[in-house]
Amino acid sequence: MNASLFRLRCAYPKSGRLSFLGHLELISTVERSVRRAGLPFAVSNGFARRMRIQFSSALPVGVSSLAEYFDLFLTERLDEDDALATIAAYSPAPLRPVRARYMPSSLPALEAWLDRSSWTLDLGPSIDGALAEDAIAALRRKGTFTYLRGAKEKTVDVSAGYVSHALSEGEGGLSLALATLSTPSGAMRPEAFVRAAFDLVGAGGALPEYLRCIRVAQHHLEDGALVEPYELSLPKLVD
């Protein structure tokens, strides 16, 4: 990493209709916002000279988020709040950054560093809490599940990806809070996890056609403690 560059970490949501953007679509949308903002971004060398920018792990298409991040490498150190205001002015509202702070250039790549995700899923009004508990427990006992991603069958190791869960009743029905961990072999998709669990107990048909899902937080897991994306040494206890 070039030490003369300035690593600006931006936090942004992914909301509304734009939760249906794929990861590559999101990347090009953010890159174009940065270009429109006229920020002094760094450009890589080589055959394809691209903007120096890193993104946190891909969200499944249709999943919204309160906590997405990108690290933009600048060639000049701008005031953080000025940079934030400029980029926000040129971003589509559902992706408008809400915080920007400089981080050490020496940190690992953002996608690998933010390995812990917290999600909430609306399971809908017709799901009973006890059934949901049974389904999740059954899938954890089974240990793996497979699902189709496009035409490809993917096998997921539940023990590697699952961290914790909690169920609560809300206005719209049952809500699931799920924590997952991504590993070098991939991340567990919350919707795939929930559908596999309910399929296992023969209740897949009770879930809504569209399972509304939000990523509510991302952290770095270090020695069993959670590190906030803007903090380097203020761990919280694992929940």
Binding site: R17, L18, F20, L21, G22, E25, T29, R32, S33, R36, V61, G62, P92, P94, E209, Y210
Partner: peptide, 18 residues
């Protein structure tokens, strides 16, 4: 909107582009 999770490339139908 409810059909978007069920189709390929839902971004085709979103509008609201810059």
């Amino acid at each position: 909107e409810p059909l978007l999770p069920l189709v390929e490339k839902p971004a085709r139908y979103l509008d609201h582009e810059w």
